[in-house]
Computed example of a mutant assay.
Amino acid sequence: MIDFEPKYITFDCYGTLTNFQMGETARQLYGDKLDAAKMAEFVEFFRGYRLDEVLGAWKPYRDVVVNSIRRTCERTGVPFDEATALKIYDAVPTWGPHADVPEGLARLASKYKLVILSNAADEQIDSNVAKLGAPFHKVYTAQQAQAYKPLRKAFEYMFDQLDCNPEDVLHVSSSFRYDLMTAYDMGIKHKAFVNRAHEPLTPYYQVNEVKSLPHLAEQLGL
């Protein structure tokens, strides 16, 4: 059980709530150019370059995606075409939630104020949030913060907007790299790791591991 009553439950969106299909979409667009092993390598490079692209000064999320694909193509010898890369960016607002999310969020929203802090563009996020099927108190984007997670500036923006402190929230994410490591460093004492199997559990960062959003609701006594 999570023995804590948060002022807000704050969420990562893409990957944690929304079924983030960057790898799958890349396979659809580039799978005819590479064999299975090379395609798996392509997806891994794409994942790594996306993280690298968000670690500096803020840039539009469109540029994050396009630059990541360009660098991946250069690394793997695949011809780069910006129009193809933009198909991935354009697909993002079409993605819906993981199957467990609507039920879990509905249970959590019955008691708590829910907040999203997402590495998203403003023009994308409303479509993804609408598909989650639950009310959110606030939705903040990297575009608004002018910084992407895992940079502290993104979290600091959220806390300033909410007028609260790190110890007031329960932060929920499926990613240590983007969220939970920074949350730990910032003094967010209450953290939940939703194990979506795309990153391993890392107990050092003092998280409550949950297998789904309904499981998180159970941990909070709902």
Rank of each mutant, 00 (worst) to 15 (best):
C73D: 09
E74D: 15
T76W: 02
P79T: 03
P79M: 00
D81Y: 14
D81A: 15
A83E: 14
A85L: 11
A85C: 06
Y89T: 03
D90C: 14
D90Y: 07
D90G: 14
A91M: 07
A91P: 10
V92T: 05
W95G: 06
W95V: 08
A99G: 00
P102C: 07
E103N: 04
L105N: 03
A106F: 00
S110Y: 00
K111V: 13
K113D: 12
L114K: 03
L114N: 11
L114E: 06
L117N: 02
S118T: 09
S118N: 08
N119V: 05
A120I: 02
A120D: 03
A121E: 13
D122P: 10
D122F: 01
Q124R: 03
I125K: 00
S127N: 14
N128I: 03
N128L: 04
N128G: 05
A130E: 12
K131T: 02
G133D: 10
A134Q: 06
K138P: 00
Y140W: 12
Y140Q: 14
Q143E: 15
Q143I: 02
Q144K: 12
A145K: 10
Q146G: 05
P150D: 13
P150V: 08
R152M: 08
K153D: 11
F155I: 04
Y157H: 15
M158D: 01
Q161L: 08
Q161E: 13
L162C: 06
L162N: 04
L162G: 09
P166T: 02
E167C: 02
E167K: 11
H171V: 01
H171M: 00
V172A: 06
S173Y: 00
S174R: 06
S174W: 01
S175P: 01
F176M: 06
R177Y: 13
R177T: 14
Y178R: 08
L180M: 07
M186T: 08
M186E: 09
I188T: 10
I188F: 04
I188N: 13
K189M: 15
H190E: 14
K191V: 09
F193R: 06
F193L: 07
N195P: 05
N195S: 04
A197L: 13
H198P: 04
E199I: 08
E199F: 04
E199S: 01
P200R: 04
T202W: 03
T202Y: 12
Q206F: 01
E209C: 05
E209G: 08
